[in-house]
Amino acid sequence: MLTFTPYENPTYFAILALGLLPIVIGLLCGRRFHWYETLISFFFLVLIFGGSKLSQGIALIAYLVYEVLLVWGYIEYRKKKNQTGIFVGVVILAILPLVVVKITPAIQNGTQSIIGFLGISYLTFKVVQTIMESRDGVLKKFDPWFFLQFLVFFPTISSGPIDRYRRFKRDYDNVPKQDKYLKLLQKGLHNIFMGFIYKYMLAYIFGTLLLPKLQHQALMAHGLSWSLVGVMYVYSMYLFFDFAGYSLFAIGTSYFMGVETPINFNAPFKSHNIKEFWNRWHMTLSFWFRDFIYMRLVFFLMKHKVFKSPKTTANVTYIINMTIMGFWHGVTWYYITYGILHGVALVVNDWWLRYKKKHQAQLPHNKFTEVFATFITFNFVCFTFLLFSGFLNTMFFVK
């Protein structure tokens, strides 16, 4: 049996087009066929996790049963009680499979965990946010069958974007009006077309044609070199166009299904500062960390008066939040350092914005300063992406 990685070859897109056709016809006629959407989701899950990836498919099934029962049980409990200890315990249990998957390579010389599968991180984000929204009382009704469909929505299962339970449910339960759906089709087609340009043209140029040559030259130089600088910029471009291209495919496919999955990238390299960058780069992940880690940790620290100054609270939380993001990418020094550097950069950025506001009469603000700010932000981001790539680890530490 053939196994497909989402959006990786023409055959997948051909099958996708045929699978989406009944959904498009139904929505144009003002009807949504939930039974067919469930069937087509199951079909694509088999394509993605069958054949040579059957072990991942089995892990996915076990994970889904575990998480759905866990969330369902907590929500039933939440209707009667609301103890913090139970809530914390459930969150820990929810993220436990992901933690095992992330730390296994670090403690077993690169061996992957048998419970891992493509997209486990993004499913875990959906699970945890559902638990937290239930704890907050904003999630009033819970349907285990719908929750399962929310988790395995096939256009976004492998790498996001990360949707929210209530937002997804509004789209899933409703049929867009014909004029709105026609606009969604237009936007969906545009996104898929741009995805092809990003992933199969630009990412190919940067990641396949340029990057290996520059990496080889940098390794031959045995230290700092212009080739290493080239690796930094070329890898950053490759990372953006590859990931943004995938996200465009996922969003475009979602639009064809009448689901307005949130965008993931918004011209991030135009950012004037690092905070703006994180409001433009991998936006659904950034906003998830903001809403479900940063804001809650700030509230906890202020409630318990851990720090006297709100500024100190915010600064400490920035670093903790971004360090956790680094650990999420993997338990390696370069991922963790990447997270810490961005946390420190956010602290410096907040200090500079306060300073600039206080001394705005003395500081110039014009087109040049904006371009300079963008230049500084872009180069900082590219440097941290070089760390993130692990190439420096290969270059200086791996013999």
Rank of each mutant, 00 (worst) to 15 (best):
L392A: 08
M237V: 03
I192R: 12
T11V: 08
T332V: 05
T84R: 08
K187D: 12
Y74K: 02
K199R: 14
F150I: 02
N266F: 14
L228E: 03
F388G: 05
I324G: 08
C29T: 04
F372C: 06
F33E: 10
G137H: 00
P176D: 05
N174I: 08
A314S: 10
V90H: 07
K213R: 12
F168G: 12
K183H: 05
G245E: 09
E260P: 02
N266H: 15
G230L: 09
G30R: 04
M283T: 11
A345H: 03
I192Y: 06
L209W: 01
F241D: 00
R290E: 01
I319Q: 14
V46N: 01
K141E: 15
E67L: 02
Y181I: 12
R354Q: 10
L297E: 00
P105Y: 03
F277G: 10
G252V: 05
F307H: 00
L214P: 04
I103N: 04
W328V: 12
V331M: 09
F307K: 03
G223R: 00
S158A: 14
R354M: 12
D173P: 11
G73A: 14
H329L: 12
H272I: 10
N109Q: 05
F388N: 00
F378H: 10
Q360V: 08
L387V: 05
F388T: 04
M295F: 03
L182P: 00
T313F: 00
T374V: 15
A361F: 11
R135H: 00
R167D: 15
L98W: 01
K213E: 13
L151S: 07
P10S: 01
P22K: 05
C382E: 05
K270A: 15
L363T: 02
F396P: 13
L239G: 00
N109P: 00
A250G: 08
W72C: 00
I319T: 15
F396W: 14
S159G: 15
G326R: 09
M257T: 04
S134C: 14
P6G: 06
D291Y: 03
L123M: 14
F150Y: 15
K357T: 05
F380C: 09
R170M: 12
V229Q: 07
F153M: 01
Q360K: 11
P268C: 11
